[in-house]
């Protein structure tokens, strides 16, 4: 009763703030919470006539189908490994890019390079896939026609040789995403008190010593937060990158198949909504567990840097 009255008091006192928060809350409710009801599909054999609530309940059958499939290991391995590379390498690339941009003295140069780095992230993945195709295509691709052949080397059939694709996909990912991922680090670096660097230079630190002793420790809270969030999505993948960039080529599916592309292909071929919902449910649950585990690990090591 007391709790209720204090909540009412708060609502009365801060109603303008709650009012301001209302559109955001409504958005979250409609966009993030109502669709959660759809998870029930993961436990049903969905039929259009039965609808979401009237279809036959089949327990964990959809999950069984998902994991008993021969591709289960490949898609899980690919999703995990690509994400681990994206998280680890992304951390290094984003921080270094942000640091180099931050170190530029000229505002003009900084704006120029930032725009150049950010531009690819504004491109649709379809355009990116055709840009990649323009480079990699067997007959008309730039690499084969203008680099390998003039050098007297054998042309490469990129879309049928899977050994190249882990590198191509990682390169395309960083080419496209570094601009956006370095922005947060750049903003954080700009917020570091410049007198810390001055004090370090008076103490005898070189630029790299300042980077490792001032910049990185000051970025640790951001690094941890972003890493925990990324770990939470470790079973998700960038559908466009893994489906569009390889041009849905069947020959290289062993290295481009991820859970998301598998679900999409499954949906296209069998229209099995239950299996797709099961895959998404699995991604969410595992992601949630990983966030909790990572956060509790961070809290044990350095409680001040934990998210909650």
């Amino acid at each position: 009763m007391q709790k209720k009255s204090s909540l009412m008091k708060k609502l009365k006192k801060y109603w303008p703030f709650y009012f301001l928060a209302l559109p955001g809350l409504i958005y979250f409710f409609i966009n993030n919470y109502i669709p959660m009801g759809g998870l029930i599909l993961a436990f049903e054999k969905y039929t259009v006539s039965g609808g979401i609530f009237g279809s036959k309940k089949i327990g964990f059958q959809n999950f069984k189908f998902l994991f008993s499939n021969a591709d289960a290991w490949i898609m899980t391995r690919n999703t995990l490994l690509y994400n681990i590379v994206f998280i680890l390498l992304g951390l290094v690339i984003s921080i270094l890019t942000a640091y180099f941009l931050h170190e530029l003295k000229s505002n003009m140069s900084r704006k120029f390079y930032q725009t150049v780095i950010l531009f690819p992230s504004l491109l649709s993945i379809i355009i990116v896939s055709y840009l990649a195709n323009a480079l990699l295509a067997g007959d008309t691709g730039f690499i084969n026609n203008h680099i390998l052949l003039p050098l007297g080397l054998e042309p490469i059939s990129f879309y049928s040789e899977k050994k190249w694709w882990p590198f191509i996909l990682v390169f395309v990912h960083f080419w496209q995403m570094t601009g956006t991922s370095c922005i947060l680090y750049l903003a954080n670096m700009s917020a570091i008190d410049p007198s810390l660097y001055e004090a370090a230079s008076m103490d005898g630190a070189t630029r790299w010593q300042s980077f490792f002793n001032i910049t990185i420790p000051c970025l640790v809270p951001t690094i941890i937060t972003l890493t925990i969030l990324a770990v939470g999505k470790i079973f998700n993948s960038d559908f466009g990158l893994f489906y569009q960039v390889p041009m849905n080529s069947g020959a290289i599916i062993d290295v481009t198949q991820t859970i998301d592309t598998y679900v999409y292909r499954g949906l296209m071929n069998t229209a099995n909504l239950g299996m797709s919902a099961a895959a998404c449910f699995y991604q969410s649950v595992v992601g949630f567990c990983l966030v909790m585990i990572t956060n509790s690990m961070v809290r044990r090591i350095s409680s001040e840097n934990a998210m909650f």
Binding site: D193, S195, L196, E198, S201, M202, G204, A205, P217
Partner: peptide, 21 residues
């Protein structure tokens, strides 16, 4: 000459203490 080679020390207005140390 670089600051580190001048053999001088400075106390800053806002202390400039390294927050993580």
């Amino acid at each position: 000459v670089a600051p580190k080679d001048r053999d001088i020390a400075m106390v800053f207005q806002n202390y400039a203490l390294y927050p993580h140390m």
